[in-house]
Amino acid sequence: MTPAGLQKLRDELRNIKEVQRPQNVADIETALGHGDLRENAEYHAAKERQAELAARMAYLESHISLAQVIDPAEMNSNKVAFGATVTLMDADTEEEVVYCLVGEDETNVKAGKISITAPIARALLGKEAGDDATVRLPKGTRDFEIINVEYKAVD
């Protein structure tokens, strides 16, 4: 994962611990004050939220502790690999698209960040500017030409 991706996970974990979980505890206490727990929807919803927060915290803590951080800004290569920002030309539409290959937790297609495990990313790995890449997708195959490969800091 990139340094920005790791920081995003840390920020989310901090938010859960410092904001969401204390609010959830307060919600449970408020619901307990309403009496009979058997028919107390607020209590059951708050307890369910507590379980969701605990599961997300465990997930985040695990991923943070096991993270392998790679800073694309420190990479020097002309081949597509993790962290690369790749400019592609769609052979059919002649439309240019730019993708940054990031870890699964950092994926944001609207921002142009795709997972290194995505079909497009896998088809691009090891290729250079000027190479062609054929991507097999559920809707059929698409051909791309790699216009540019660069490594820079990821936001």
Results as ranks from 00 to 15, higher is better:
I146D: 14
R122D: 12
A41V: 12
N76E: 04
E52L: 05
R14P: 08
A133C: 08
E104D: 11
L37R: 10
A111K: 13
Q50E: 04
V98G: 01
A91Y: 07
K113H: 08
Y59R: 05
R136C: 07
I28H: 11
R21L: 15
F82M: 07
D71S: 02
G5R: 04
T93A: 01
I146Y: 01
L137Y: 03
K110L: 15
I64C: 05
T30P: 15
G5F: 12
M89A: 14
R56T: 01
G130P: 00
D132H: 15
V109I: 10
V135E: 07
A54S: 05
D71H: 12
G112Q: 15
A4I: 15
Q50K: 14
V19I: 13
E150S: 07
L37H: 05
D92N: 12
E106T: 01
A118H: 15
N24A: 04
P22V: 02
A121M: 10
A81F: 11
P72G: 00
Q50P: 08
L13E: 08
R136P: 08
E48P: 14
T85S: 10
V154W: 13
E42H: 13
L13N: 02
G112W: 09
R136K: 13
V98K: 08
Q7P: 09
E128I: 04
D132M: 07
R38Y: 11
G140P: 02
E74W: 12
L13I: 04
C100P: 10
L9T: 05
E29D: 11
D92H: 10
V80R: 03
K139G: 11
N24F: 03
I146Q: 08
C100I: 11
R56N: 09
D155N: 02
A129H: 00
Q23K: 07
R21F: 14
L13C: 09
E74K: 05
D132C: 13
V98L: 00
R136H: 14
E95A: 04
T141S: 05
V25H: 10
L13F: 13
G103P: 01
N24E: 00
E48W: 10
A73R: 02
P138T: 14
I28L: 06
Y59T: 07
P119G: 02
T117C: 07
G103V: 12
E106K: 06
V19P: 01
R14H: 12
A118T: 06
L53C: 03
D11K: 00
I116E: 10
G130D: 02
Q23V: 07
P72M: 12
M75C: 04
F82G: 06
P72Q: 03
Q68I: 15
C100R: 11
G140H: 03
A58D: 06
I116R: 13
I28F: 11
R10M: 10
V135I: 00
Q23H: 06
N76G: 03
E39N: 09
T107L: 14
A111R: 14
Q20M: 15
R10T: 03
V102L: 04
F144K: 01
A153S: 03
I120G: 00
L125M: 06
R38L: 15
E48R: 10
E104H: 02
V154H: 02
Y151D: 01
